[in-house]
Design a protein around this nucleic acid. Structure first.
Lengths: 138, 138
DNA sequence: CAGTATCCGATTGGATACTG
DNA sequence: CAGTATCCAATCGGATACTG
């Protein structure tokens, strides 16, 4: 019966991994969009106004930044404070939850920076090999 | 001139952060799609055949799994080994590079699991507040 | 079994113009 | 200045059918 128990434990481990993957998948759905990490990165150094974030990111459209910040606010990652001045002024700031995300992202970012050259090389090899399987060697 | 130097260092730090964000954004573009982390998760316990990965993930379509694995192979994250048997048999396995990605992902996954309840609550609050600003209180 | 091709609906995200 | 609404092209991804 020891083997049966081992199998069950193995299955349990797999279930657990699968659950982790789903949780990870869900946050990647949120954080893996085009602008979220840029916005979090900009806000990581302190509260900023809408247009400042926009300039820091550079290529983002007005509409997408609004949607990105709204989503972050909904998830409790940023606070939005509107001052009823003329012209209006709206400040965004990371919450504790938002700040707690920075470290995990930094880990991933470290991996990205460290391995980008390797990936670049792998892609070149792959693409070249693919080209040789088609037209070029003829 | 000390202040000028300080400003320059601050700018340099910002540039650096921005570069990190772009690197991070690029790998999230690759890893943040619908199926990549699931595939990496399945392969994290050893080499697997195409259909086994497919069953482990569950909801993925045949086409998307092919595309996902092809992209991972192109980036040097998995190897693909085809055996010319009948029926054919193709095994996928994480490379060292692919395995090195697991830890960063696990960190993020840990964050996700730990903070999902908080996020869930924040969303409820936000959605309820939004509903009260429209029709409901009338 | 694994891979490819085609089709098509759904989602994404930019451009633009308007509002308070 | 910040936010919203509309429009539209591009991309994504599932279903299906066919091939070696």
């Amino acid at each position: 019966m020891a083997s049966r128990t081992a199998v069950k434990e193995h299955d349990a481990a797999r279930e657990h991994d699968h659950a982790n993957c789903r949780a990870l998948g869900q946050i990647l759905d949120r954080v893996g969009d085009k602008w979220t990490v840029m916005a979090v990165g900009a806000l990581s150094r302190g509260p900023l106004r809408f247009n400042v974030i926009m300039r820091e990111i550079g290529a983002v459209s007005h509409r997408m930044l609004t949607l990105t910040l709204r989503a972050l606010e909904r998830d409790g990652m940023v606070t939005r404070t509107a001052y009823a001045t003329i012209p209006p002024k709206v400040e965004y700031e990371l919450t504790d939850l938002g700040r707690s995300l920075i470290e995990p992202l930094r880990v991933l970012s470290g991996w990205a920076v460290e391995n980008q050259p390797t990936i670049e090389t792998a892609r070149k090899h792959f693409d070249e090999a693919a080209r040789h399987l088609e037209g070029v060697p003829a």
